[in-house]
Design a protein around this nucleic acid. Structure first.
Length: 206
DNA sequence: CAAGAGATCATCT
DNA sequence: GATGATCTCTTGA
């Protein structure tokens, strides 16, 4: 009993710091697996364990929005690592990305799916479904479940509203695949820059 | 189950 | 004016 308490204390959650996000985008995408996404909101706190990510790497990656130049929309990606890049696709769904690497190098990691951990009832209400496995198994679903919209674009993930935690979990089994929905990206469409926790039931697709 | 359509809007040409 | 880093529902095996 005492040992158990002690163990929990030593593996307390640690908020990810700026330096974590300043590393290479592929490393960050891989290392975000098994980290916890925390969202504080007036309606309550939601937490999810990240099980799926994708890397979007710099001006040459034609799947990356910034490959078409520095525009008002992509400005955040050119800024400091550790900030949120949130945008709307297809007129319906928000996507949550985390800016990585050095200032002026536009890159980010798309958070594609999390396993619901805390605030599950709140997620159910927002998503209007009972199914645990479809609460946040996709980038659009995740943003709906966590109440993430364009108001969070540019938000600092080293702040208190939206951030990530390391809870001392080591993820060893990782699968990579090409990224989803980027068929237009020519030579870059086949890059194995999508990262999944192997056998997780909470990913958007195998 | 797989495939297809429709929903809807910010962004850039 | 075209186009998505998607989701859900419907249709038909």
């Amino acid at each position: 009993m005492f040992n158990k308490l002690l163990k929990q204390n030593t593996s307390a959650a640690v908020k990810l710091s700026r330096s974590f996000y300043e590393q290479s985008t592929l490393d960050v995408a891989r290392r975000l697996l098994g980290k916890y996404l925390v969202r504080k909101h007036a309606d309550g706190t939601t937490v999810g364990r990240i099980v799926e990510t994708e890397a979007y790497v710099g001006p040459d990656d034609r799947a990356c929005h910034a490959s078409r130049g520095r525009t008002p929309r992509t400005e955040v990606m050119f800024g400091r690592a550790g900030h949120a890049y949130v945008y709307l696709v297809y007129g319906f769904h928000y996507m949550l990305n985390i800016v990585t690497e050095a200032i002026d190098f536009p890159a980010a990691v798309l958070v594609r799916a999390v396993e619901p951990v805390q605030g599950v009832e709140l997620m159910r209400a927002r998503r209007e479904t009972e199914q645990l496995h479809s609460l946040a198994s996709g980038p659009g679903k995740l943003c709906q479940a966590f109440a993430i919209d364009r108001k969070l674009n540019g938000d600092d993930l080293c702040g208190k509203v939206l951030y990530l935690e390391d809870r001392g979990e080591a993820v060893s089994k990782v699968v990579t695949t090409p990224r989803i929905g980027v068929d237009y990206a020519g030579p870059w469409k086949g890059k194995p820059w999508r990262f999944l926790i192997k056998d997780s039931a909470f990913v958007s697709r195998p």
